[in-house]
């Protein structure tokens, strides 16, 4: 039953991908991409990857769409009609697909418990997590402790994107395109969205914090929580307009968050060295190794959440404020 449902969803995925390619209005294509991401998230959920599903829904479908919308507002919505027939690209792509499908027959079947990846490394994680880290969510244990260095890198990836977007969009505009658009006032003239938005806003933030602190026990963690809280604050900016949002939550706070979270993460790692262990070794943080692991994971998850939230907000505002720059 589940597999039929999965097949249906996957087929839908292919159809939507085709529709995205064919759409000439970029706005339509973007909305279809959002649907694509949500379908992808559903698929992940069916395949038991709850954490990934939550992340894909929050970041892939949510934040990415918002950033795309910001860019679309600054560029144009229509794609020039497509004329050239891609004689070269078509066979190249078709051959790649054929090769991949050909190779797939030696892949382990979906759900095969005998597949090599279920035999090596991972059994150790499942067995040792209760003993060494003692938190229920094994994904968080790997993310926060066993492979914490990857996660540190990931935090700096998003920080790099934030620095990059700020750097690129703080360049002076060429004089001919400069305009003096009035500062946006958001939706504050529209009663219904305003009231409804204000009502929902605290719950979004609350949910964000829930996801942050519940990450040890269920799906969730810093990335998802950071994205959700950022979404809430972006909603605020949409409702009240750029200017008021920036007055309530100025840029320097966001920058301090983005930099501070990354710094916090790295410093937890350095604390491991300072207290006689290795980098990112949480066991030495406390006299009881397991308590040390708990403390370490709590701190780095907080760092992740703060950085992700700050970076995403900075990126959003960089696009949103460019018009009147």
């Amino acid at each position: 039953m589940t597999i039929l449902f999965a097949v249906f969803l996957l087929s839908l995925l292919v159809i939507i991908a085709v529709a995205i390619i064919r759409a000439e209005n970029l706005f339509v294509a973007l909305m279809l991409t959002t649907i694509f991401s949500l379908l992808m998230a559903t698929n992940f959920f069916i395949l038991d990857a709850a954490d990934v599903a939550l992340t894909e829904a929050a970041i892939g479908a949510g934040i990415t769409t918002v950033i795309f919308l910001g860019a679309l507002a600054l560029t144009s919505e229509h794609e020039k009609p497509f004329v050239a027939v891609p004689w070269l690209a078509l066979p190249v792509v078709a051959v790649t697909a054929a090769l991949l499908i050909f190779a797939s027959f030696d892949n382990p079947r979906l759900g095969d418990p005998e597949a090599p990846i279920h035999q090596h490394v991972v059994p150790w994680y499942l067995e040792q997590t209760p003993k060494l880290v003692d938190i229920p969510n094994v994904v968080t244990a790997i993310l926060g402790s066993f492979r914490a260095f990857d996660t540190l890198g990931e935090v700096f990836v998003i920080f790099a994107a934030c620095i990059g977007v700020l750097f690129l969009l703080s360049a002076r505009k060429p004089s001919e395109t400069r305009c003096t658009a009035p500062a946006s006032v958001g939706l504050s003239q529209h009663l219904i969205p305003k009231v409804a938005g204000r009502f929902i806003l605290p719950f979004i933030i609350l949910f964000g914090f829930y996801v942050q602190f519940h990450g040890d026990f269920g799906p969730g963690g810093g990335f998802q929580a950071g994205a959700i809280v950022a979404t809430g604050l972006i909603l605020f900016a949409l409702l009240e307009g750029e200017e008021r949002a920036l007055r309530a939550f100025p840029r320097w706070i966001m920058m301090a968050m983005a930099a501070g979270g990354a710094l916090l993460y790295a410093l937890v790692g350095v604390a491991g060295i300072a207290m006689g262990g290795k980098f990112l070794d949480y066991s030495v943080l406390s006299s009881d190794p397991i308590a040390g692991q708990h403390l370490g994971i709590l701190l780095i998850e907080a760092g992740v959440g703060i950085t992700v939230c700050g970076s995403l907000l900075l990126i959003f505002h960089a696009f949103a404020a460019r018009e009147s720059f």
Binding site: H190, I192, P193, A196, G197, F199, I200, F203
Partner: peptide
């Protein structure tokens, strides 16, 4: 509850 709040709002926004 969430749907009761959001879906009319989004319909309003689209129509508007």
């Amino acid at each position: 509850l969430f749907l009761m709040l959001t879906s009319p709002t989004s319909s309003y926004a689209v129509a508007n």
